[in-house]
């Protein structure tokens, strides 16, 4: 069932809070490269970042584009177009085939 919580919207704006909230979870360290800050800020709210690492390095560029779009369209991730582009570019470069 659903937790509708204004706090969460605020949390989305603050990656620090999101990662902080799950401090006991072992941090998943993704490759340090341009765009990582946007990935950490936008992709860790609903699940840990091991979802990305686990799904690599097989995805093609088109697959990563579709995956980022799925997070936004199917799961409601509040990510604007510019960030989505940078995130997709990071994923293709560092976790793509």
């Amino acid at each position: 069932m659903k937790t509708v919580c204004a706090l969460l919207a605020a949390a989305f704006a603050s990656a620090a809070l999101v990662t902080g909230a799950f401090a006991e979870e072992k941090p998943v360290e993704l490759k340090k490269a341009p765009g990582l800050d946007k990935v950490e800020a936008n992709c860790a709210a609903c699940h840990s970042l091991d979802y990305i690492q686990m799904n690599s390095p097989f995805p093609s560029a088109a697959m990563w584009d579709a995956e980022v779009a799925k997070m936004i369209k199917a799961y409601g991730a509040p990510i604007d177009d510019a960030d989505a582009k940078d995130i997709a570019a990071y994923l293709k470069k560092n976790y793509g085939s």
């Binding site: 072992k26 091991d50 690599s56």
Partner: peptide, 25 residues
């Protein structure tokens, strides 16, 4: 996938034996 092989570790959730962790959260 290679990424799965490097990310998967044995980890014990409360009340569980060490199992193969694919995602924490």
């Amino acid at each position: 996938p290679a990424g799965t092989r490097s990310e998967a570790v044995l980890g014990a959730l409360p009340g569980k034996k060490p199992l193969i962790k694919l995602s924490y959260r």
